[in-house]
Nucleic acid binder design. Structure first.
Lengths: 173, 173
DNA sequence: CCATCTCCGACCTCGCTGGTAGGATTGAAG
DNA sequence: CTTCAATCCTACCAGCGAGGTCGGAGATGG
């Protein structure tokens, strides 16, 4: 499995924020505040667990919070400017294909513990690099706005029409 | 982490088989038989664990075995015709980005357990599909022969700035 | 003051990864 | 025909991280 539920829940949380943020049309695409309780209820996710997840998003400056009664969370930037690589890194840490991979974001170095094992380096390094590249590419190409649009389309194919259970056709096959 | 050590060790095993298979120049690119003991020693991997891993490769018809004294393993096909997606699937099972993803290789269906949770489907599905696509793409584009060449080149740096073949642009060190 | 919400850290359970142990079976060499 | 080296097979185990819970402390509007 590539991602854990941290990524899953975190992204769904952001999408929920994006969906309800659009309704307001406030300044800088930030949107309305949503309480975690509301999100947890809407998505059917454990509240206590979500708290820990949203903390990661806040630390990454993707989300900002308002404390106290009627508080909650809102996106800090416009959904169209939030790419998933940021999000996933915030939630999961770096995406490494293998335990021996430590990708320093500063320098493009890739460390492999087996490096000097037996004369020749890891044969697998080339493969893991490509895979990681493929993942990061897809992540950075996908924005939160896209996911919001995708989710909203499924709920309400036509704007304003509440709809149940739409046919889900992914653009793959 | 995307892959476990099963993939790592399995690929290294295949590469080792490919490296020594080329020396022989036997029929149909099969190569010589190598004992697991030799491979384990060469790569510094636990023998007993390798046994279980190579069993997966054998079940997937990527490798064939000779029992008894002086027995061992050899590639069943030419390294150039073995793509990594086969290998990884054999070793890790299917590569799914998320637990709720079950990709039936026959029908291009993608199941998501959260499908009917709350009216709208997983917003994350689009993202996971893309990521999985990226991974599978990279895997299927990489052949065992490439990895063998990559590994061999590191051991014995063959002269020639223009190494014929794939873009081996590893940004290391 | 009180309900509501964010914030924070400790705690727990469970399944899987990574690895070991011990043996049975096969087959070539002496 | 014994012996040794190899594949094969099943069971077992320790550690760890994922996934989630609990309880409480600090803000804040009504």
């Amino acid at each position: 499995m590539i991602f854990t539920t941290k990524a899953e829940y975190g992204v769904r949380l952001l999408v929920e924020l994006g969906r309800h943020g659009a309704e307001q049309g406030e300044a800088a695409g930030a949107g309305a505040v949503l309480s975690l309780k509301a999100i947890a209820a809407a998505e059917g996710l454990p509240l206590a667990y979500l708290e820990r997840i949203v903390a990661l998003l806040k630390k990454a400056d993707l989300v900002e919070s308002t404390r106290g009664a009627h508080g909650g969370y809102r996106l800090k930037r416009d959904p169209a400017t939030i790419s998933m690589d940021e999000v996933i890194v915030a939630l999961e840490g770096a995406v490494a294909p293998m335990t021996c991979f430590v990708d320093d974001t500063d320098s493009p170095r890739v460390l492999c513990s087996h490096e000097s094992d037996s004369g020749h380096g890891c044969a697998t390094k080339l493969l893991w690099m490509r895979v990681q590249g493929g993942v990061m590419e897809k992540l950075s190409q996908t924005t939160l706005a896209e996911l919001v649009a995708f989710a909203t389309r499924e709920t309400a194919p036509v704007r304003g029409a509440a709809h149940t259970g739409a046919p889900l056709t992914i653009a793959a096959g």
